[in-house]
Design a protein around this nucleic acid. Structure first.
Lengths: 221, 221
DNA sequence: CATACTTAGTGTTCATTGTACACTTAGTAT
DNA sequence: ATACTAAGTGTACAATGAACACTAAGTATG
């Protein structure tokens, strides 16, 4: 396990992902069932070892596609966790990422039994393997904070949406209610939205204008 | 070099530190001269390999003490850089940290020739080894941003100080002038400062009250 | 010892931003 | 035709941020 340097241990490097979506008015995270020891049968964050010649971002992308089938989503590095005892087998440090996926973009969920995957509200997480609870807490904290000073919710919205849907998205991430008129004023004032000209005729009520983001980039207010 | 897993390379893990101080009204970073290849003779960030059983934070602390002789300073993890080509020898990922040290707390600098250490204004950095320029840019960006929404400057101030010194600290980090009255109002309004009751009688002018921070913790506004 | 010099210390006005709050509109359903 | 539902809109007030100039309390000098 150790190199010729003695003091300098060979270290495993993994990436672990906090993949978020919003569904049924709940902020949810993807968990995968561990098939093997340690923590066999426990839920954990999707992750994997860094491969030969692979950048950290690329590794995170790879894990994302493996588990969700989805590409091209918002992703950012969160933090690196390196407690020497965090993996009982050997020294492994993990570079944690946050990813955001609009629920609509996810393939229809198959049975949890088959896939070993599930989406769980971040407020009612089960016991998680390793230090994944800590990682997840940190990710939720970062996401909640970032919502208030950036347009990061973009990563969770479908391409076109009603302003009321956008508002709900904010509300369920920050877990608080917002004033409709002030919300609309602020959002339109950012200049990041544009009207599509289309209307959403669903429902027995006045149809809503559909909006979309002008740019994919994350902007800080 | 490779493990039995083939795809999964053994990876070196280092920590690299952007250590900042302010002196002569300049935000400066510590650089160390590389004694060995690669990048022999180049300036680089202080850093080192993660040791056996050592947490990332502990490794960063160790490097800090080795290079500065100083303990107990503000330090935070910055970002993890993992481009597969960032070290020409082999796969090494590095966890970057930011550290802040009040200039007054540093031991008297010996000759650069002897120590291989120097402090350079972040606006006039020389060519750096590896991807250290990129790391440093990111660190400066983070520090400049954080100054405006936290009391992180605490990490750069001596224990007691005049409000005008505090203002200068802000000004030279954000590289802009601030209004004296508004600055004082805002600072005192945070409630994070307390008067020491002492006066600074240096200089041929009205003596200044000395202040200190009530708490060591970093607070976000 | 009177005067000049230097930095410390202090308030107010105005502009901008944020917050609270209720009714009309345009569709569908009965 | 009427009821129902979510969409869409404006204003008054409070809080915050920004611009701005003089007096105070020491030391240094002639």
């Amino acid at each position: 396990m150790n190199t010729k340097y003695g003091d300098y241990e060979q270290t495993g490097v993994t990436v672990d992902l906090s993949i978020f979506t919003v569904n049924e008015d709940r902020l949810k995270a993807m968990l995968v069932r561990r098939a093997e020891a340690p923590f066999q049968g426990f839920w954990s964050l999707p992750g994997g070892f860094l491969k030969n010649g692979e950048s950290l971002d690329a590794a995170a992308q790879r894990v994302l596609i493996e588990k969700t089938g989805v590409n091209d989503v918002y992703m950012e590095q969160l933090y690196t966790f390196g407690d020497p005892k965090r993996d009982p087998r050997s020294r492994v440090i993990t570079v944690a990422y946050i990813a955001l996926i609009p629920w609509q973009n996810l393939p229809k969920p198959e049975s949890e039994k088959v896939t070993g995957l599930t989406w769980v509200s971040v407020d009612s997480l089960p016991k998680l393997a390793f230090d994944h609870k800590e990682i997840m807490s940190y990710a939720v904290k970062r996401l909640r904070a970032k919502v208030s000073y950036s347009n990061i919710v973009h990563g969770l919205m479908p391409r076109q949406f009603r302003l009321s849907e956008l508002q709900s998205m904010y509300e369920c991430i920050i877990d608080d209610k917002l004033d409709k008129r002030n919300f609309r004023k602020r959002m339109l004032a950012t200049g990041l939205l544009k009207e599509t000209g289309k209307k959403d005729l669903a429902g027995a009520h006045r149809p809503a204008m559909l909006y979309q983001f002008k740019t994919t980039e994350i902007v800080f207010f």
